[in-house]
């Protein structure tokens, strides 16, 4: 995490190239977070760009507390929730690309995609966020609870429930 804080500090000091390093280090988690809330790749892409602009803007005021990822992901989450609130539910339908394929393709990339599809289409919003953050960024449950503003116990139990659900769904599909 020190590495990310360094990048933010460099950004604050005018080193624009730090954005490339920060982006490379954090883009998967940021996109995963946005996607887990929005389930729409276009909106998630917008949020991704806005997140980094906010980070850029906020970098001079960022106070290093050892939790830069939590700060960035909170920005992503808030921007994503803004979109959810601003659009009627019917405008945020599940994109067809997240509907699981028929399961006949066993290539590695297809199996990876299947997991993402099942996560997006079968878990609820909070479950998706928890699983994404733990899988992608290896955040501690305590940190996830802080970012999502939920009790630690909720984060823990939802994580385990989600993984159990995913295992069952994926095993059923591969039978």
């Amino acid at each position: 995490m020190q590495e990310i804080e360094n990048h933010i500090s460099e950004l604050a000091n005018g080193d624009i190239s730090a954005m490339e390093r920060l982006y490379a280090r954090t883009k998967t988690a940021v996109y995963g977070m946005a996607l887990s809330i929005l389930r729409n790749s276009h909106d998630a892409e917008d949020v991704m760009q806005d997140t980094y602009l906010r980070v850029y803007e906020g970098s001079p005021n960022y106070q290093a507390k050892g939790k830069p990822m939590a700060w960035i992901l909170r920005i992503t989450r808030n921007l994503s929730l803004d979109i959810v609130r601003s659009k009627p539910a019917k405008e945020l339908p599940l994109e067809t690309e997240w509907l699981p394929d028929d399961g006949s393709d066993f290539s590695e990339s297809s199996l990876d995609k299947l997991v993402l599809q099942v996560v997006i289409s079968q878990l609820d919003e909070q479950e998706r966020q928890i699983v994404m953050l733990h899988s992608i960024e290896r955040l501690k449950h305590r940190e996830i609870a802080e970012i999502l503003e939920i009790p630690l116990g909720t984060a823990l139990s939802k994580y385990h429930r989600s993984l159990t659900k995913l295992r069952k769904l994926l095993e059923e599909r591969s039978k």
């Binding site: 998967t28 995963g32 699983v131 899988s135 992608i136 995913l166």
Partner: peptide, 20 residues
């Protein structure tokens, strides 16, 4: 599952850096 999910998101994440 976690590894697959991480790889899938890595693969599908768009590149917004140039625009950014």
């Amino acid at each position: 599952i976690r590894n697959r999910l991480k790889r899938a998101v890595e693969t599908t994440a768009p590149d917004v850096l140039p625009h950014l």
